[in-house]
């Protein structure tokens, strides 16, 4: 036993030297004493996961502390978001995702969260693409719309679940065209895209960043991008804007970033504000990520971030309400009809 203990003490000593380090002087108002956790409330490999890991990587050095990214998927991201809300408000537990999610959770009756409950720091804005399995007969968006109308409620659409980007995209299309569809919910954007590649679902309306690899490999066929302008994606070509078919289409992009429940120490928010202005705004890694995968680089925080996020939350919240999917009117949480 003694020998055993001795060996373990030696290993420990070595690991201490390896892991423990002196506290760095970062010159920031807040110096974290232990690693910070960012909960990704979706599965690994999805859009939130990708972006959060890049942001975490960019922040670790200036912050002088480790950032642990934890995947906690399930129930449209509300499981992981709830654990961030339950955590102590000491600045050490963050979560991430699409700003629209935390903005509409309580309208959907999932969990009690609205955008004002959070201090938000945005990284990129994403757009959704309507894509189909290449073996399917739909060559153009017109073909797909005709099929939706011929077989209402039978064409399957893979999304990351209730209130996910893909679900919102489909609801917007429904608002303009009145089509009925069959939503198949998955744990995240990546599984939904894979299910479409595998042929379990015919259509996916998840985000460009999640589809980029499969589009490039020719395993998905893009039909339309849900934004004002056409998208030229590296290795895929030009994807036409949905305005070609629905000229009155008008919805802002879907903002992504990291956030923390209000109530964290003031210094924490100040520190992240400085980090955002100094490092994230100049991050080559995030810029490259956005360029390669069809996203828009939007390093914002504070009031400006809240306003931008609201520009997407408000129409989506009312969309849900009008579609009968909301449990409460958006007006009850102070979102006026746009």
């Amino acid at each position: 036993m003694k020998k055993f203990t001795l060996i373990s003490v030696l290993i420990l000593g070595a690991s201490m030297a390896f892991a423990g380090g002196a506290k760095e002087d970062t010159g920031l108002p807040w110096v974290p004493e232990k690693p910070i956790t960012i909960i990704v409330p979706w599965s690994a490999g999805g859009s939130t996961d990708q972006l959060t890991r890049i942001i975490a990587g960019e922040l670790e050095d200036p912050l002088g502390q480790k950032i642990v990214v934890q995947n906690q998927g399930g129930a449209s991201g509300s499981v992981g978001t709830q654990s961030a809300l339950d955590a102590p408000r000491d600045g050490y537990t963050w979560t991430a995702g699409a700003a629209v999610d935390i903005g509409v959770y309580n309208i959907l009756g999932l969990i009690d969260s609205q955008i004002e409950d959070w201090d938000i720091f945005l990284g990129v804005a994403n757009v959704m693409i309507v894509s189909v399995n290449p073996d399917s007969p739909y060559q153009t968006f017109d073909d797909l719309m005709a099929a939706f109308k011929a077989k209402p409620g039978q064409i399957s659409v893979a999304t990351a679940g209730q209130s996910s980007a893909g679900h919102i995209a489909m609801e917007i299309i429904k608002k303009y065209t009145g089509v009925e569809y069959k939503m198949i919910p998955y744990d995240g954007g990546n599984p939904a895209v894979i299910a479409t590649v595998a042929g379990e679902a015919e259509v996916t309306t998840q985000m460009a960043v999640e589809q980029a690899d499969m589009l490039r490999a020719g395993k998905l066929r893009p039909l339309a991008v849900l934004s004002d302008a056409d998208m030229d994606m590296k290795g895929v070509g030009v994807i036409p804007s949905i305005k070609k078919w629905i000229p009155e289409y008008e919805t802002g992009p879907n903002y992504f970033g990291i956030w923390i429940p209000k109530g964290a120490p003031k210094e924490v928010i100040e520190t992240f504000g400085i980090l955002w202005d100094k490092y994230i705004s100049n991050s080559e890694a995030i810029k490259n990520y956005a360029a390669e995968r069809g996203a828009i680089f939007t390093p914002l925080w504070g009031e400006e971030a809240q306003e931008k996020a609201m520009s997407y939350i408000a129409p989506v919240a009312w969309l849900y309400y009008d579609a009968g999917k909301a449990k409460a009117s958006p007006e009850t949480i102070g979102i006026p009809r746009p």
Binding site: A44, R53, I54, M214, R216, A217
Partner: peptide, 15 residues
């Protein structure tokens, strides 16, 4: 492991 590869800029997949 897959997530770690993503972090380090390696993109496994069909390509």
């Amino acid at each position: 492991l897959l997530a770690a590869m993503f972090i380090h800029g390696i993109r496994p997949g069909p390509l």
